[in-house]
Write a protein that binds this DNA or RNA. Structure first.
Length: 422
RNA sequence: GGAGAGAUGGCAGAGUGGUCGAAUGCGGUGGUCUUGAAAACCAUUGAGCCGAAAGGUUCCGGGGGUUCGAAUCCCUCUCUCUCCGCCA
């Protein structure tokens, strides 16, 4: 959420930011409400000051045995006006907050301006695309031939988009989770957490999923819970409503399944493991001082890339433009793996700097050098999402004989067996 | 699921109607002393909102009520702890 004072003092910049995002936001209308709110607050607080003073007088009069009934009646009347004005303030504050919750973050000045994914610049590439002298098979054929997953039975259990991994495929899923968690905890300095998979409304609001994106999530209304679409939600909100007294930055990594309704995405990339309602992901989350977040964002992205380099998979990093960036982000890199059989790039990681946008929503603060309380910056990135990583491993690792050779880095996690055969 | 107890500042823990944003201890910060450190001593130390400032106002788990006045009384919700039951 944006700071209403920031909007007040930077109206033009906020309006430009919204325009660059393609977001329709009535900044002037919001500021008019804010103006009204401040006027009423000033008025009601003056009344309260007077009322408090009179109440105190009543106490003194009564202590000396005097008669205070007349003053009491007067003060009671003041109380009535105060109640009316307080109600106005509450209404104004509620509607201001409602509007703020629907306003996306202002893009960073460094974020390239653009209207769609067409405008996302490629920042760098790593590795060479696979060349083969045989016809490459798509991962869904490979998976079926080698018995790595059974999507029909998965659909029987829950519907399409809920994968059932089997045999070496299930093992590979577990191996990758463990491999990535080990890498981030042992090499990159992240502290592992294992959070809840269902979160309440306040938590979902803290990171920006609610109120605007309720339709994208699985909900359990009986219990007031939502299935998490990413570990970002529980891990970022771990410190909601706290003033952190530990040294920053704080780095966490977590494995969780992720649940997405993918509302509106029906029919798109539905083949195989490309787009699922449930998938596994290892996530990295950072809490930093404002002045450190840009540098930490680069490191976070490098940490995600390290996973792909260790697995020797070709990828590219693109930067999302203003029109393609997520709701809460001020800056964002996507990492895409090359899927040689389908000849397309697959997004496996999204590394975002949220500035203080989420911290303000979730009320996560720290004490700066002057001892002042201030909002932290939050960042997160996938490190990385599993299904598309599996796609790349299968399609890149396939051999002419139909077997799949996995990278050596996974050997110890696969009990030494890095060749998947029938 | 049943019974009981509790929720106060970074932590511990007082406070049962006005003198309470809140004792005391610990911790934090600054200082005195010291070659340096420790100890001791002194001072200081919650957050939000309005305001240029002075200052004002709100907050003692959340919400509501009683009262001129609520951390304190009443209702309600949530959470935590203890015991019982059930259970991976």
């Amino acid at each position: 959420m944006l700071d209403i004072r920031f909007i007040r003092e930077n109206q033009a910049a906020v309006e430009t930011g919204m325009k660059n995002r393609g977001a329709d936001v009535d900044v002037a209308g919001l500021l008019a409400l804010d103006d009204q709110r401040r006027r009423v607050v000033t008025q009601v607080e003056g009344l309260k000051a007077e009322k408090n003073a009179r109440s105190k007088q009543i106490g003194e009069v009564m202590k000396t045995g005097g008669d205070a009934d007349a003053v009491k009646a007067q003060v009671r009347e003041m109380g009535d006006s105060i109640a009316t004005l307080d109600e106005q303030v509450r209404t104004l504050e509620t509607s201001i907050r409602e509007q703020l919750l629907y306003i996306p973050n202002v893009p960073s000045e460094q974020t390239p301006v653009g209207s769609s994914e067409e405008d996302n610049p490629v920042v760098r590439s790593w590795g060479e695309p696979k060349l083969a002298d045989f016809e490459l098979q798509p991962h869904w054929d490979l998976g079926q031939q080698l018995g790595l997953f059974d999507l029909e039975r998965g659909a029987k259990l829950s519907g399409s988009g809920f994968p059932l991994f089997t045999g070496a495929g299930a093992r590979l899923e577990r191996a990758l989770i463990q491999f990535m968690l080990d890498l981030h905890t042992e090499q990159h300095g992240y502290a592992e957490v294992a959070p809840p998979f269902f979160c309440n409304e306040a938590t979902m609001t803290g990171t920006g999923q609610l109120p605007k994106f309720a339709e994208d999530m699985y909900a359990m209304p009986v219990d007031g819970l939502y299935a998490i679409p990413t570990a970002e939600v529980p891990v970022t909100n771990m410190y909601a409503n706290e003033i952190l007294d530990q040294a920053l930055p704080i780095l966490h990594t977590a494995y969780t399944p992720c649940f997405r309704r993918e509302a509106g995405a029906a029919g798109k990339d539905t083949r195989g493991l490309q787009r699922l309602h449930q998938f596994d992901k290892v996530e990295m989350v950072k809490f930093t001082r404002p002045e450190d977040s840009a540098a930490e964002h680069e490191k976070l992205t490098a940490n995600a890339e390290a996973v792909l380099q260790a697995l020797n998979l070709p990828y590219r990093v693109i930067e999302l433009c203003t029109g393609d960036m997520g709701f809460s982000a001020s800056r964002c890199y996507d990492i895409e793996l090359w899927a040689p059989a389908q000849e397309k790039w697959l997004e496996v990681s999204s590394c975002s700097n949220f500035g203080d946008y989420q911290a303000r929503r979730a009320n996560i603060r720290y004490r700066n050098e002057e001892g002042k309380v201030a909002f932290v910056h939050t960042l997160n990135g996938s490190g990385v999402a599993l299904p598309r990583l599996v796609i790349a491993l299968l399609e890149n690792g396939q051999q002419a004989d139909g077997s799949i050779v996995l990278p050596d880095a996974l050997a110890s996690y696969m009990r030494g067996n890095t060749v998947l055969t029938r």
